[in-house]
Structure formats: C-alpha cells, structure tokens
Amino acid sequence: MKMLKPVLVVLTGYLLLKFGIPFIGSQLHPGTWPVVPTSVMKMYMFFLIVGTLMIYSFSEEGYAAVIQPAVNLYVDPARGTARMAVILAVGALGAYVTYQYVKPTFDAPVELRSIHPAPPSSVKACVKTYQLQGLKNPFREDKASFAKHVEEGGVVYFQNCYFCHGDRMLGKGPYYDGFNPLPANFVDVGTIAQLTESFVFWRIATGGPGLPSEGTPWVSAMPVWHELLTEEQVWKVIMFLYDYTGHSPRVTAPVHH
C-alpha cells in the first residue's frame, strides 16, 4: 500500500492544477473559470509525475515500494487477469490518445491570437478617413450636454449592442454564448479601461472584419458598425460605455513628455 502515497501526491497535484488554479483565477476575474490550458497541463503533469517518482524512489525501500507492485503485476503467475487488464488498458489508452489526436474537429487551429492587435494608423469609415492617432471623441469636450450625450448613447447601446454585450456590459447578452470569441466584457479592466477612445472607435466602426491578421484565426462576429450607425452614434455609445462602467478612457501620453 506504500504505492498509494505517490499516487495520492500526483492526484493532489492534479486536482490543485485542475480546480485550484481556476478557482483562484475565478476570484481574481469573477465570471470566468480560467482552466490551465491543455498544452501547459500536459507539461505540468509530466514533471509532476516525474518529480513524485523521484521523491519516492531515491531510497532503496522507496524504490522497492514504487516498483514492486509493477514487478509483481508482471511476473506473478497468480495475477494473470490483472496483468491482462493492465495491458489492455495501456493499449486502450494509446488508442484513445491516438483517436483524440486524429479525429476531425471544428476547433480553429491553435494559434497565438492577439486580443488587442495594434491598430492601423488610419481607418476608413462612414465614407471618411480617420487618423486614429490623436482622434478625439467630439462630444467629450462638451461638458454641458454630457448627460444628454450619454443618454443618447445608451439608446444606441440598447438598440444595437445589448444583445451580445448584455445589460450589465459583462459580455453576457442574450446571444452571448453563440460566439467565439466571446463578446467583450466592458466592466473588466482588461478591455475598454486600458484602451483609448480612438481604439474603441476603430473596433466598433470596422468590427470583426476590420481586425488585422494578428486578430485571426477567430475573426470576431462583431458587425461593421459604420455601415449601420452614424459617426455621432458611435461616439455617443462610447461615451455611454465609459460612463456606465465607471472606467475612464486611456489617454495617450503626448509625444513630448
């Protein structure tokens, strides 16, 4: 029964990786369950098993305890059934792994997708060309009508954006689970909070098809809004996004510090 100990250690490690890390992650980013990606999990488990075997096999007794059950299984005439079961299980495992590896899948190929790719210098939208750098929200300056603009943006939001991005802007609108990549969560500090208004304008105006190649292979389903909304509507909805979430847009540091 000494062999149980290393098995338990590996199992504990596995559970920690499988549930512990996602749990911590879910506390940091509520609403997500950040699993350890398979690619990393495989390496973790490999070295976890190797490390555990090392810890339990350096001494002669430990080594015997680890290896003895396996030796017994393979040489003890009385354990023929168990032996055959193990051999079959190993074969079946190989078959399973091979099957998983070769079976057709609809998943996009695993590539390193950039969530916030570098924006282009200029954007053609609403039959105009915008130089993104230095592009400002024309309604930001007008402090007097701030509330009015935000309210108008809210109308635009709930008529167009709400269905995917949701009423609380968590990216969980009625249709959210049909998309890959998921609709952006605007409350999260990782989205609009770290972007300039001009970047957000670009992303809304040209949508998924406007993403550069770094944003592939999963082109987002975001519509090309400049074909459906006016420039003013886009700017107003941006006002609404920031006001509602309480974030403030990132300001590019002027070139001269």
């Binding site: 210098s121 130089q131 750098q133 230095g134 590019t252 002027p254 070139v255 001269h256 510090h257």
Partner: peptide, 24 residues
C-alpha cells in the same frame, strides 16, 4: 521602427511627431 516606437514605452510614439516638430 515599431520594435521600439510602440505603446510599450521603449521609445517615443511617433504618430504626432510631425505636429510637435516645430516645438522641438
């Protein structure tokens, strides 16, 4: 150029360099 002139702050952003050149 973009290795350094990017948002990571290795070097100044150049998108407005033509505007600020007279000040410089």
């Amino acid at each position: 150029c973009t290795l350094c002139h990017n948002s990571l702050g290795r070097a100044p952003l150049l998108e407005q360099v033509a505007q600020v050149a007279p000040e410089r």
